[in-house]
Design a binder for these strands. Structure first.
Lengths: 192, 192
DNA sequence: TAGTATAGAGAACAAACGTTCTCTCATCAA
DNA sequence: TTGATGAGAGAACGTTTGTTCTCTATACTA
C-alpha cells in the first residue's frame, strides 16, 4: 500500500480518537477513509495493530494504546535531544494519566498572588490538588487560614506545624488552633 | 435506587474508563456491577446519561463526556474557592485537551539547567513544545545553538533576532548565521 | 506485452450488542 | 396484612459488528 496514504489514514484514526474519545468501528473507519468495503478496512486494522497504535479486545473491538492518545517524549533540553523528525524509538505518555494519581480525590485550582513565586509557581498557573494525601514537611498545601484559602509550604517545628510562603516578603503563619488542609499540591501546570 | 449504591457504581464506571480508555458495553457493565441482567443495566445507563456522565451514539454505543474523563475545576486560591465537598456546579476539564492544541506537532521535553528560572521553569519540569507555531517576541523557544539545544526567550532588535535566558547570569546569544528553532513552548508541567 | 501483486468491492455469516418485556422478590408505608 | 414501588432476573428480538471469502480493476515488473 502507498506509504503516504497509510500515513494520512493513520492521522485520520488519531484525529478520530481525539475528537470522539472512542475508537471507531469498522464501518466508521470505512466512512472515515472513504472506502466502501469493510474487508479492506480489516487489512488496515492489522497494520495499525502491528504499529502498536491500537489493540483488540476479546470480542474484536478496537482499544487504544498510549501511542494513540499520548504525546511523544523527546528527551531533555541541553542534553542534545533527538531531532523532532525521528519519530521512532520515542516514548509516549498521556498528561492526564501521568499527572493525576487519584482522579477521584483531585481537583484543579487557579493560582492568584505571588506567595509561591520562589517555588516557581506564579499567578495564573493551575495546580492539581490531591485531597487524599497526607502532607509531609516541605509539601505545598492548600490550607484555610482566617477563613481564607492559601497555598503555602507545610512545615513543622517540634510538635507544632506552621505554614511558610515561598516569598520572603510574607511572614510565617502559626495557626492559633486547628489548621484545615484542603489537599497537597501534586503538580503545577502553566499555559502560555 | 440506593444513593450510595448508585454513587459506587458511578465510580466504577469512571474507573473503568480511566483504565481502558474506552467505555464498557452493557455486558461489561453487568459484570462490573455484579448484576446478571442487561435490562437492569439499561436503567442505570439512563441515569448516567441524565447525569451527563456519558452519551449515546446513533447506534446506541456509549460515548464519554468531559464529566467522565475530566478533572474538577474548583476556582481560585486566595479568592476563597468553593469547598471540595460541593461537587455540583463545577466545571471539568481534561489536561490533555486543554494543554495541547496541535497534538501531531507537539512533543514533550524534560528541562535541565537553570537558565529559565526567572520564568518559573526549573530543572525537572516538563515542557510541551509546539513545532508548528511561529515564534513571536517574548515567546520561550527551543533553539539550536552551537549544535546544542537550549530553551530561551525569543527576542528581536531591529532586523536581528537573538536569544535571552531568564537568568541574569547567562549572557544573550546573538546567533552568527542561521538560527534553528525546534518549536515554541506552549506549556510547562511540574510534578512533585 | 504478459504476468504478478495489491487495494478495494461486495456478499455472507456467526457472534456480540442495544433494546424491550414480563416476571419474581424484597422493601417499605399505610 | 395489603398494596405499591423498585431492583434485578431472564428471555427474546432485530441490528450492528468483526471476520472471512471471492472477485474485479488497477498499478507495477520483467
Amino acid at each position: 500500500m502507498s506509504e503516504q496514504l497509510y500515513h494520512r489514514r493513520r492521522e485520520l484514526l488519531i484525529a478520530y480518537y481525539r475528537r470522539h474519545k472512542q475508537l471507531p468501528t469498522y464501518d466508521d473507519l470505512a466512512e472515515l477513509f472513504g472506502v466502501r468495503s469493510k474487508g479492506s478496512i480489516y487489512k488496515y486494522v492489522d497494520k495499525f495493530i502491528h504499529d502498536d497504535l491500537i489493540a483488540k479486545s476479546d470480542t474484536g473491538r478496537l482499544i487504544p494504546t498510549t501511542k494513540l492518545y499520548g504525546l511523544r517524549v523527546l528527551g531533555s533540553v541541553q542534553a542534545g535531544f533527538p531531532s523532532p523528525a525521528e519519530e521512532e524509538l520515542v516514548d509516549t505518555m498521556s498528561m492526564d494519566a501521568w499527572l493525576i494519581e487519584n482522579p477521584d480525590a483531585s481537583y484543579l485550582l487557579q493560582v492568584s498572588g505571588d506567595s509561591m513565586i520562589n517555588a516557581g509557581i506564579v499567578e495564573g498557573d493551575m495546580v492539581i490538588v490531591d485531597r487524599s494525601k497526607d502532607p509531609t514537611v516541605g509539601d505545598i498545601v492548600i490550607a484555610q487560614v482566617d477563613n481564607e484559602w492559601t497555598m503555602k509550604y507545610f512545615m513543622k517545628r517540634g510538635n507544632g506545624i506552621f505554614l511558610r510562603a515561598a516569598n520572603s516578603k510574607y511572614p510565617d503563619i502559626h495557626p492559633s488552633d486547628e489548621l484545615t488542609i484542603g489537599g497537597v499540591v501534586t503538580s503545577v501546570v502553566r499555559k502560555y
